[in-house]
């Protein structure tokens, strides 16, 4: 009896050890680079950067008509549902008046062009993203290239990230979006979301991975410049160097990656 108890304890001990190392091993392999082989393969055309950023040149925009193709390109590619009830809207990139896009910068003597001009707003892909900090499950996370992404399968729908975002860039699926996506525009290459999860602009991470620039940039006819902020030779740096730009709510310290030329 005593003996069998001892054997049992031994086996239990060894199993526990195995379980412990089992938990540890993936991390060990991750650091030695073996994960790449086992995991997905990177497309050789993939666009990479140290920190992706965007400049919106509002001088090249005159009216909502100029923004429509940009917004539609995003909506179509990402299966954004068209929801009439504005309380349940899903928005990745949309237009706002200056006083809403830059609430602390409005004034009553504002230049006529700026006052009536629609401004494109989207997720700022913040350097210090409050949403990443707030998320209790790491469903919202930041990649090494600065893009703030979401795992729609991990999100529990607590909406802490929505409270945390100072730019109102996040939307919640209050109902199943399926019925609000037209079958004729449905893009089977991008996942449709389920009810109860949060979503937002992903800087077209799925397009960058296959060597394409974000859909809005492509549709913008040169009004949006996209590139690596950390690369001093890049076009975006050249644009930032030769123009004065502003960012939304810069004083909050979130470090937005979207710049505006006014």
């Amino acid at each position: 009896m005593e003996n069998s108890k001892r054997i049992f304890l031994k086996i239990a001990g060894v199993s526990a050890l195995g379980l412990g190392t089992g938990i540890l091993t993936p991390n060990v392999f991750a650091s030695s680079g073996q994960k790449k082989e086992a995991g997905f393969k990177k497309d050789s055309n993939a666009l990479t950067a140290k920190r992706w950023g965007m400049v919106i040149d509002t001088r090249k925009i005159e009216s909502s008509d100029d923004l429509e193709p940009i917004i539609n390109a995003c909506n179509k590619i990402h299966n954004i549902p068209e929801i009439k009830n504005h309380k349940h809207e899903i928005k990745w990139i949309w237009e706002e008046e200056f006083k809403h896009a830059f609430p602390s910068k409005g004034n009553k003597y504002l230049n006529e062009r700026i006052k009536d001009l629609p401004f494109l707003v989207l997720c700022n892909q913040c350097e210090n993203a409050p949403c990443v900090k707030a998320c209790p499950t790491k469903a919202t996370f930041q990649r090494d290239d600065g893009i703030v992404l979401m795992d729609f399968h991990r999100c529990i729908g607590c909406r802490f990230c929505m409270a945390a975002c100072p730019y109102g860039s996040r939307s919640f699926n209050f109902k199943d979006p399926k019925e609000h996506i037209k079958p004729e525009t449905y893009n089977p290459e991008f996942p449709r979301r389920t009810k109860g999860v949060v979503e937002k602009c992903n800087f077209c991470a799925e397009r960058l991975a296959v060597g394409k620039k974000p859909a809005c940039v492509e549709a913008s006819d040169g009004a949006i410049i996209f590139g690596d902020l950390e690369d001093s030779e890049s076009e975006i740096r050249e644009v930032l160097n030769s123009n004065y730009t502003i960012r939304r709510k810069q004083a909050l310290g979130t470090g937005p990656s979207i710049f505006y030329i006014i």
Binding site: P136, T137, K138, A139, R154, C155, I156, G157, C158, R159, F172, N173, T194, K195, G196, V197, V198
Partner: peptide, 14 residues
């Protein structure tokens, strides 16, 4: 209040 209550345990998993 959770949109995906079945995933609540993700808070402990991650």
């Amino acid at each position: 209040d959770l949109g995906q209550p079945m995933r609540a345990m993700n808070v402990m998993l991650h």
